[in-house]
Simulated scan of single mutants.
Amino acid sequence: MEMITELYRLTRRCEVTAILILYGLLRLLTGSILAHEMMHAWLRLKGYRTLSPDIEEGICQVLAHMWIESEIMGGSSSNATSTSSSSSSSTSSKKGGRSQFERKLGDFFKHQIESDTSVAYGDGFRAGNQAVLQYGLKRTLEHIRLTGTLPF
């Protein structure tokens, strides 16, 4: 049997068409999941090469953690300057007016990310978070793009 071979260049195109999330989850949990999944989408759309699970899941967990932090620690925001005449109980859910319950819930979700024992999500988060704290998010992402690893 004769085999004919020829060069064929594969072009991989990655498109993100949707992010699916369960309905009915708590606001902070929904937001952190969206931040995590949007980071996956951003990495794909920006052409990051195939990353190891600990790098990719870790940096996505860093973004989820950062989002929760911004929500529970955020002081005044553009919401605080709203001139809406319907200032009902919904104003207590705006930044700067978080209930103690929501702050504690956010702290719990952050703790879950910080103490995760899995290699990809837990160890990946701790390494990624250390890099972001040391070098900043932009420089960390640039290093990941260039090398596929975290800066140390």
Results as ranks from 00 to 15, higher is better:
residue 117 T to V: 14
residue 101 F to M: 07
residue 67 W to T: 12
residue 102 E to V: 10
residue 88 S to V: 07
residue 111 H to G: 13
residue 32 S to V: 05
residue 114 E to Y: 05
residue 82 S to E: 10
residue 34 L to F: 00
residue 40 H to E: 05
residue 38 M to Q: 01
residue 72 I to P: 13
residue 64 A to I: 09
residue 49 R to A: 12
residue 113 I to A: 13
residue 83 T to Q: 11
residue 84 S to G: 07
residue 53 P to G: 02
residue 94 K to P: 00
residue 86 S to D: 15
residue 103 R to L: 09
residue 44 R to Q: 09
residue 54 D to T: 02
residue 42 W to F: 09
residue 45 L to E: 10
residue 61 Q to A: 10
residue 51 L to Y: 04
residue 56 E to R: 06
residue 79 N to A: 13
residue 104 K to S: 13
residue 89 S to F: 03
residue 57 E to Q: 06
residue 90 S to V: 03
residue 51 L to Q: 04
residue 115 S to Y: 10
residue 119 V to Q: 08
residue 46 K to P: 10
residue 88 S to P: 03
residue 43 L to E: 03
residue 114 E to I: 07
residue 68 I to V: 15
residue 99 S to V: 11
residue 114 E to F: 08
residue 69 E to S: 13
residue 113 I to H: 08
residue 59 I to F: 06
residue 103 R to T: 09
residue 34 L to P: 00
residue 117 T to K: 14
residue 117 T to C: 11
residue 51 L to P: 08
residue 75 G to M: 13
residue 43 L to M: 10
residue 55 I to P: 10
residue 34 L to T: 00
residue 92 S to D: 01
residue 111 H to Y: 11
residue 89 S to M: 03
residue 70 S to H: 14
residue 33 I to S: 00
residue 54 D to Y: 09
residue 59 I to T: 05
residue 117 T to A: 13
residue 54 D to L: 05
residue 33 I to F: 01
residue 53 P to W: 00
residue 114 E to G: 03
residue 112 Q to D: 10
residue 76 S to P: 13
residue 112 Q to K: 13
residue 56 E to C: 09
residue 87 S to K: 15
residue 70 S to M: 12
residue 100 Q to K: 09
residue 65 H to Q: 12
residue 38 M to R: 01
residue 88 S to Q: 04
residue 76 S to I: 15
residue 82 S to L: 15
residue 39 M to D: 06
residue 46 K to C: 14
residue 51 L to E: 04
residue 57 E to R: 06
residue 84 S to E: 04
residue 41 A to E: 05
residue 39 M to H: 06
residue 77 S to M: 10
residue 54 D to K: 05
residue 72 I to F: 14
residue 42 W to M: 09
residue 60 C to L: 03
residue 55 I to E: 04
residue 48 Y to N: 02
residue 69 E to P: 13
residue 55 I to Q: 02
residue 60 C to R: 01
residue 49 R to F: 13
residue 60 C to H: 00
residue 59 I to Y: 04
residue 61 Q to E: 13
residue 98 R to L: 12
residue 91 T to Q: 01
residue 61 Q to H: 09
residue 37 E to A: 02
residue 81 T to K: 15
residue 55 I to N: 04
residue 50 T to R: 01
residue 103 R to A: 06
